[in-house]
């Protein structure tokens, strides 16, 4: 176990976005929402989000948006996430006001 876990562990160099640290994970979700705004490719956005949550790709978007609202994050970022959530049919009441912006 000492050899396998510490001295000579499995090395991960080909990781997936799901293994990203929380701050990078958030950046990834936010960038997917922003790229969706530029390219308008909903399926591509869904495909990217599936790497984070294969069962409910919209979940990371909604979670991040709600967290940003609670923490007083950038309204522009929340609006982007809200628009992506809406296109994925995952709007929540808390995100509705941001869809008007």
């Amino acid at each position: 176990m000492v050899i396998g876990w510490w001295l000579w562990p499995v090395t991960y160099t080909n990781t997936s976005p799901s293994a990203l640290r929380e701050d990078y994970h958030d950046e990834y979700v936010l960038m997917v929402a922003t790229a969706y705004e530029v390219e308008g490719d909903r399926e591509k956005a869904r495909e990217r989000l599936t790497l984070l949550d294969s069962e409910d790709p919209s979940a990371p978007v909604v979670r991040l948006a709600q967290r940003l609202i609670e923490q007083g994050g950038s309204e522009e970022d929340v609006a982007r996430l809200a628009r992506l959530a809406q296109s994925l049919d995952a709007t929540t009441p808390a995100l509705m006001p941001y869809l008007q912006r």
Binding site: Y12, L20, R21, Y24, M31, T34, V38
Partner: peptide
């Protein structure tokens, strides 16, 4: 708790693409 440099090559390239498109926005 990995970071972008450890992503698989295609995911790394997609990370760059996303970052660049965000800059466009």
């Amino acid at each position: 708790n990995t970071y972008p440099a450890l992503l698989r090559l295609d995911y790394r390239h997609d990370w760059v693409r996303l970052a660049v498109l965000s800059y466009v926005a």
